[in-house]
């Protein structure tokens, strides 16, 4: 497939727009000097990934990303930032100095090259079949299908994940709970 062919497909316009947004916001997440901005950029990057899932016909995953990530996880992050008193506003000390940033950049770029070249070498010009004209159903996974798959084929991993979530819940409570110091418990004792 030559480049002009690729550019003439309408979905690739959408893809390009989403991809550029995603990379730009992701770049800002890892470089910005404002903590809150980093979180908001992450929202944008995740929203872009949700859009990408919609483009790939994975509706349920897309909305799950929106609900779980953008809805819940981000709030958690904002709380984390506030509780740990991360500096709000512009802060130059959020990243390591150049001494570390440069090797890190080299390593991650090399990682990208390795993964990318492997992928390109493996799949070359393989195409994800577009939806044929007039059959919108093709290539779109209905939520019902995902549900059936989860509760039939993948029911055991599903249960395991539910246990994991419970364990994480308990673990987070145990870790984050503030054990009352002696004076505090004495104070409550006298109040009673």
């Amino acid at each position: 497939m030559i480049l002009t062919d690729w550019f003439t497909m309408p979905e690739n316009f959408v893809y390009s727009a989403i991809g550029v947004t995603m990379l730009a916001t992701a770049y800002r997440v890892v470089t910005t000097r404002n903590v809150v901005h980093a979180v908001l950029h992450l929202v944008a990057a995740l929203a872009a990934s949700a859009a990408l899932f919609l483009l790939l016909g994975a509706e349920f995953v897309a909305w799950t990303v929106v609900l779980v990530y953008i809805g819940a996880v981000i709030v958690l992050f904002l709380f984390g930032i506030m509780i740990t008193r991360a500096p709000l506003g512009v802060e130059t000390e959020l990243s390591h100095p150049r001494r570390i940033r440069i090797p890190a950049a080299i390593v991650s770029f090399a990682l990208f090259l390795v993964i990318g070249s492997t992928m390109v070498g493996a799949f070359k010009d393989d195409v994800i079949e577009p939806a044929p004209q007039g059959t919108m159903e093709f290539g779109i996974t209905r939520t019902a299908d995902v549900g059936q798959s989860i509760f039939q084929r993948f029911v055991i991993p599903f249960e395991v994940v539910s246990v994991l979530l419970l364990a994480a819940l308990i673990g987070a409570i145990v870790l984050a709970r503030k054990d009352p110091t002696e004076e505090e418990s004495e104070a409550t004792g006298t109040m009673r």
Partner: peptide, 8 residues
């Protein structure tokens, strides 16, 4: 759509 565009 190429698969590689997503993978990259």
């Amino acid at each position: 759509m190429l698969i590689n565009q997503f993978l990259l």
